[in-house]
Design a protein around this nucleic acid. Sequence first.
DNA 1: CCCTCGCTAGCCAAGTTTGACTACTTGGTC
DNA 2: GACCAAGTAGTCAAACTTGGCTAGCGAGGG
Lengths: 216, 216
Amino acid sequence: MSAIRLLVLGAVRQHGRAHGYQVRNDLEYWGAHEWSNAKPGSIYHALKQMAKQGLLLAHEIAPSTAGGPPRVEYEVTEQGTEEYLTLLRAYLTAYDQRPDVLTAALGFMVDLPREEALALLAERVRRIEEWRGAVTDYYTPEEGPGQLGHIGEIMNFWVHSADTGAEWTRGLIERVRGGAYTFAGEGDPFVGVLAEGEENPFAAGRPRHEDDAATG
Amino acid sequence: MSAIRLLVLGAVRQHGRAHGYQVRNDLEYWGAHEWSNAKPGSIYHALKQMAKQGLLLAHEIAPSTAGGPPRVEYEVTEQGTEEYLTLLRAYLTAYDQRPDVLTAALGFMVDLPREEALALLAERVRRIEEWRGAVTDYYTPEEGPGQLGHIGEIMNFWVHSADTGAEWTRGLIERVRGGAYTFAGEGDPFVGVLAEGEENPFAAGRPRHEDDAATG
DNA sequence: CCCTCGCTAGCCAAGTTTGACTACTTGGTC
DNA sequence: GACCAAGTAGTCAAACTTGGCTAGCGAGGG
């Protein structure tokens, strides 16, 4: 569905134990509010929801050390870890045109063994090609293309997206196969969390993309 | 935001006067439920909402000719037409990584004069390039790339998407400039609506893309 | 004649997302 | 000593989305 659950699970997991504001900060550090729906409301909602569902364990905590209401710290349960890996695998292979979903999964792919990541990415390519085949078969009837007028551009656009998406994935497979990055069980992982008190270099002035769809 | 308002306004506009089920049918005919959130609930909600906001005029109508509750027919008001064109222009130029938004706009682009469509598409390319510049400037600091570990793949992915998106848009510009399609004021437009009683050839068995993100 | 099935047209409750808002602390400063 | 800005942590109502549900009608079988 949406990338928010994977992002929140991943953020809590990297800390071991984290409260909402920490998650919020990490996601901002990753720029997630730019390319996904990781806004405060969604984050706190996801935390509560997943705690209710047993994916997270909520610890009630005394008033925070620095202002604001009392904090709740969360920890990923075993069931939450399962869900995390399930989502991660699904999002690496799902070709659903939602760049935020793939982006979130890319950020965590190194939590899987290298071979599994490679297999999932190969599956991704296979699914894209399958999807492309179905669409082109379907929308290219006997009368030939061009019968659809400008509507044909829609198919053209989608097919183009599928092709370039598959091409990019093949490039990634190549890099991973060539030994890039540090995957699960290969040593110290690369972790993108802010230490307690560390300053967030990306907190402001990040390149924004204005979606100025006027509404009135 | 979402493509639903443009889709609904466009569908009602092409009919002149339409009830919810007609809109729903047109959107299905266009395959919109495949590539956007055009589901019954969203469609009826959008109709009511836009009627409340004065973008649509609601006519109460007697019980439907064929079963079900009484129907309400809608008509686009002058304000609604303005909103329609505003959204259309915004969505043609907005590079916000939401393929459904661009797709919806492509379906209606011929409602604009050819020259304006060309200008908007050129603006789109300009914005994509601007966005790309900002991102690469920002995420390629003095230490050089590779400092980010596998996180660099995220930027790589976004930049690749931007590049191929711009490339595709340039291709479209070329086709439109070369005289393709029939734009506003150039004669009989291509209209993709189902006549009353006409069968929808795409009603079932359309290629589906399974987003089987397991959730348990 | 009655009953079920399937189609038409739309509704609604539950869940999610959004962005503005609250409340509280720290640290400077006049 | 009082006040203001900035930062912390989270809440809330309003809007949107989802997908299953309702209700009316005709067709066809027994």
